[in-house]
């Protein structure tokens, strides 16, 4: 990533209507609907919240700030979605933020009682951004349903920190904050598991990848870009072309050539 703090501040303000203070670390909060995302949001930010709409959309946008270990964080609550394949406005917003806003850390909240459906979203997030923390919420509910989740091996499988929480009881939130600090500072490296597609899909990606590489600057995840273009996702095409059109780094590159 080659964005300066100032460029990022401008980008967040102009495209997402979010004011990032100087030196503040920007965190995105993603997750399926009804996984206790807002409980975690409230628990982390308390009353320091600002709510509004995403620019030009009738979708709620909540941001909240908090301090931890003398660092200032801005938590952006993304709309609850099952996927990022952009079939709804909410998914487009979540996808565009993760892809084009370069949050310093992304927290994916998972419902431990239906892990499969929630991992679907987590793996999609992993394709876009590497600095991810998985927050395995509703552990108390999972326990009641006698679902045993081996958190250390989940962490190994996913390649990112996994924090087990029961946010309604306030369990695990301190650990979550610690991991946020560690991942943001880079003292904890993440290597998120990448989806292995069936051979036909991989072949198609391989075909398109060189073209995509010549197209975008190296801040965007190329493989994922290729997949979206192959997916024929028009809403993504619009977001991408508007992003490429306004991004100053990109323009500079082109004009220099």
């Amino acid at each position: 990533m080659n964005l300066t703090a100032e460029q990022k501040r401008v980008l967040w303000e102009d495209r997402f209507g979010i004011s990032l203070a100087d030196g503040q670390i920007g965190i995105a909060l993603a997750g399926n609907p009804n996984v206790g995302k807002s409980t975690i949001f409230n628990a982390l930010t308390g009353l320091h919240q600002h709510t509004g709409n995403w620019p030009g959309k009738t979708v709620d946008n909540a941001q909240g700030a908090f301090l931890y270990e003398q660092k200032s964080f801005l938590l952006v609550d993304l709309p609850g979605t099952y996927s990022l394949l952009a079939h709804t406005v909410e998914e487009q917003i979540a996808r565009d933020f993760l892809c084009f806003a370069y949050p310093d850390v992304t927290i994916v909240v998972l419902d431990a009682t239906c892990l499969e459906r929630n991992l679907n979203l987590a793996l999609q997030v992993f394709e876009i951004t590497p600095k991810v923390i998985v927050c395995l919420n509703l552990m108390d509910e999972a326990e009641k349903k006698r679902l045993m989740i081996d958190v250390p091996s989940l962490e190994r499988e996913l390649g990112v920190p996994v924090v087990a929480t029961a946010a309604r009881q306030g369990v695990g939130l301190t650990e979550l904050k610690q991991k946020i600090v560690q991942v943001a500072s880079g003292s904890l490296q993440t290597n998120p598991r990448q989806i292995v597609y069936s051979s036909e899909v991989e072949k198609a990606v391989k075909q398109l990848l060189p073209l995509v590489g010549s197209l975008a600057n190296n801040t965007l995840p190329l493989r994922w870009l290729a997949l979206r273009l192959l997916d024929g996702d028009r809403s993504f095409l619009e977001s991408l072309s508007s992003y490429l059109g306004v991004d100053p780094c990109w323009e500079g590159l082109r004009c220099a050539q």
Partner: peptide, 26 residues
């Protein structure tokens, strides 16, 4: 293509849950 992507993602997901998830009668 779109269907295949989703099916593949769930295939990956199932591989993970097989490793980490165990159920007991509840």
């Amino acid at each position: 293509f779109s269907d295949q992507i989703v099916t593949d993602i769930y295939g990956n997901v199932e591989q993970i849950t097989k490793q980490v998830l165990s159920k007991k009668e509840s």
